[in-house]
Simulated assay, not measured.
Amino acid sequence: MKILLVGATGTIGSAVRNELTLRHEIITAGRNGADIFVDITSPESIKNMYQTVGKVDAVINTAGNVYFGSLSELTLENNEITIQSKLKGQMNLVLLGLNHVNDKGSFTLTTGITMDDPVVGGASAAMACGAIRAFVQSAAIDMPRGIRINNISPTVLEEAIEEYGPAFPGIVPVSGKKVAQAFRKSVEGAQTGQTYTLYC
């Protein structure tokens, strides 16, 4: 398959790339160190990416910024960080990418544990992740040409526990390799409208 991987240089993206590159042609996209530049907060940037890449069999997104902070610090501007990237950015990858994905291809988006297991400071992240899960479930029954769509919802990764661990007290991390298998299942399998959770 020809797979477009957005966010390939991040912790999750790197693990997914390492797993899938063994069997597929991977084209990476992102803001740094990728084959193609894309800023998912910009519809024009997304359009330019798809025009450059052409037709693909699958689109995977592991990118998406979220604001973490207490509710009292969750200003409209801070919340927009999450909305523009994690929420609208992922939805726009699908809406603008439908005509660039081959018949019976797939989209795989990324959510996260905050939508199911709340943590202090995670309200904005939970909002976007929950919305993406609902979008995936609903879009799956309306996707054209047999295209599938799923989302992967991991907890904090072992590889990032030093940086993010304090925000997730008592939560058991998972390995990037295990998370990458869920992305493989989404891309190479046949299910659609699913949320693959990796919470332990």
Rank of each mutant, 00 (worst) to 15 (best):
E19P: 09
P166K: 05
G189M: 14
T62R: 01
V179Y: 03
D57P: 08
Q84P: 01
A180Q: 04
G176I: 05
I113F: 06
T62W: 02
T195C: 02
A134H: 10
L95F: 06
G105K: 05
Q51C: 04
N150F: 02
K177L: 13
K86S: 11
N79S: 07
A123T: 14
F107W: 06
D117I: 00
E188L: 10
S42N: 11
S85K: 03
G97F: 08
A139N: 12
S153I: 00
G7E: 05
S138T: 15
K2N: 13
G10N: 06
V56Q: 14
I60E: 02
V59S: 05
G121P: 03
G33H: 09
P144E: 15
Q191H: 06
A182K: 03
V187C: 12
G112M: 07
A34P: 02
D116S: 07
Q137S: 09
I132C: 04
I141H: 14
A139S: 15
V53M: 12
K86W: 05
Q137N: 06
N151W: 00
E163G: 10
I83S: 07
I161P: 00
T82I: 08
Q137D: 04
L87F: 14
I83V: 13
S153V: 02
L76C: 01
E80M: 14
Q84W: 01
M91E: 07
V136C: 07
E158H: 02
P43M: 02
M143T: 12
P43V: 00
T114W: 05
S124D: 14
D116E: 13
A167G: 04
E159H: 02
